[in-house]
């Protein structure tokens, strides 16, 4: 049963990876990265149970945390990388 859930999470990760690659807007990519990070947390948790060593959970916690901070970071630097302009126009020069 853990196997089935592992495969489900892996499939979800692959689909999210494709969305992160395909875009088309940067926000789609951020969303995909966020989903991917959550799925990685799940994968680590499930694989721990699958292999009978559920002590990996510390690492899953770091993932959850870093995933959040990374998404905030991308938003912060993307939104304000071109002050005064619409954030999704190309920043030729500040």
């Amino acid at each position: 049963m853990f196997t089935a859930v592992t495969i489900a999470v892996l499939v979800a990760m692959a689909l999210a990876l494709f969305r992160a690659y395909a875009g088309p807007t940067l926000y789609d990519r951020i969303l995909a990265v966020n989903v991917f990070g959550t799925k990685t947390v799940l994968l680590i948790a499930i694989v721990g149970f699958l292999m009978g060593r559920p002590e990996f959970l510390d690492i899953a916690m770091v993932y959850a945390l870093m995933n959040f901070i990374t998404v905030i970071g991308i938003l912060r630097f993307f939104e304000y990388s071109s002050p005064g302009k619409s954030a999704n126009s190309e920043t030729v020069k500040d």
Partner: peptide
């Protein structure tokens, strides 16, 4: 920006691999 995000995914993936 997208490359940075994909690199973040790469980090997550390789970390999962190390866990395995």
């Amino acid at each position: 920006f997208a490359v940075t995000m994909l690199a973040g995914i790469y980090g997550l993936l390789s970390a999962s691999f190390f866990v395995l």
